[in-house]
Simulated assay, not measured.
Amino acid sequence: MDATTLPRLAVTAGEPAGVGPELVARLAASDCAADLVAITDKALLRRAASASGVVLDIVDDDGKRIASRPPGRIRVRHVPLAVAESPGHPDPRNARHVLDMLALAADGCLAGEFDGVVTGPVQKSSINDAGIPFSGHTEFFAERASAEVVMMLAGPRLRVTLATTHLPLSAVPSAVTPALLERTLRIVRTALASLFGIPQPRIAVLGLNPHAGEGGHMGHEEIDTIVPVLERLRAEGMELLGPLPADTAFVPAMRDRYDAVLAMYHDQALPVLKSEAFDSTVNVTLGLPFIRTSVDHGTALDRAGTGTANPASLFSATHLAMDLARQRRQS
């Protein structure tokens, strides 16, 4: 990527029976100033465009970089469906199609063919029903790239990262170890500096217990685990706040004191973020050797095939990927 060419982004359409293909069609029809390469089945994309009421100029991707893209034109890396989609009804026979899309996009990023990947929503249950263990995009890309990663959810005014992701609440305390916290904070700090252009990022770290343990009266994880890690990393020069009580860390008076929040578990911080920016929240995988952003919603099977799905999250994910690609180029 250079100053004369557009950011070249792979866009995976996700579950073929969900809203992902329609969202990709809507994105392609927009004036988004990116070189969009849809990773999907070409016939599926044409059907999705028809359902969405948009007209697309769909061409095979030739791998060349371009300086401009007219609205409605999109290049495609064809990944064939096993069976034609039935909107709203995922078919496990198409599970391999979904995983092949992700593999093609990841491998293309690793080879430098793409500046990043933007992912549409997948139906995890359908992939698992096909007998293929699959826990999510984040884990798939981490394994593909042999990388240690951190999940970030970014809204217009708030960035939240997670120490643990999809775990039962009962499993969280034992999972929050000094090694995990140190690794996570290092990845978050590096990404904020290199991807988001924040030279000396400030990270607010939440406690695990109510009132951040209240001096040991509501739990000892803060005293025994979190505080020693923060003190050690502060001695290296990291700017870390906390551990902070989760119920006060997000009040307006605190927002200007940090650039991102590290939460201990999934539902500790994400309800705050989604309640204020659901349609514009973007899932970003930190720690990968390439840029990966995603919609922060599911396959919306009840809307599939109707052309009524809201494309705002995919638009936000694409624009953030463009910004991150440009920042990476500059740095």
Rank of each mutant, 00 (worst) to 15 (best):
M1K: 14
A3M: 08
V11N: 04
T12Y: 06
A13G: 04
P16W: 02
G18Y: 05
P21H: 04
A25K: 08
L27Q: 02
A28P: 07
A29N: 07
A29G: 12
D31I: 03
A34L: 07
L44M: 14
L44K: 08
L45E: 08
A48H: 15
A49M: 12
S52V: 14
G53I: 13
L56G: 12
V59M: 12
V59H: 13
K64R: 15
K64G: 07
S68V: 07
R69V: 11
P70H: 14
G72D: 03
R73P: 02
A82W: 00
A84E: 14
E85I: 00
P87W: 00
H89D: 01
P90Q: 06
H97L: 08
A105T: 12
A105K: 04
A106Q: 13
D107Q: 14
D107F: 05
P121H: 11
P121M: 10
Q123Y: 15
K124H: 11
N128T: 12
A130K: 12
P133M: 12
P133T: 12
H137N: 03
A147H: 03
V149L: 03
R159C: 02
L162V: 02
A171K: 11
P173D: 11
A175P: 10
V176I: 15
T177G: 10
A179H: 08
R183S: 14
I187Q: 08
L192C: 11
G197D: 15
P199N: 13
P199Y: 12
L208G: 03
N209V: 05
A212S: 05
M218V: 00
M218G: 00
H220R: 13
I226Q: 06
I226G: 09
V227C: 04
P228Y: 10
L233T: 11
R234Y: 10
G242T: 04
L244A: 06
F250D: 02
R257L: 14
Y258L: 06
D259C: 05
V261Y: 01
V261F: 02
V261A: 01
Y265W: 05
Y265V: 01
D267N: 00
K274V: 00
V282T: 04
V284H: 00
L286S: 04
L288A: 08
F290D: 08
T293K: 04
T299I: 09
T299M: 08
T306I: 05
N310Y: 08
A312L: 04
F315Y: 13
S316R: 10
T318Y: 11
H319A: 13
L320D: 13
M322L: 07
D323L: 13
R328M: 13
R329H: 10
S331E: 09
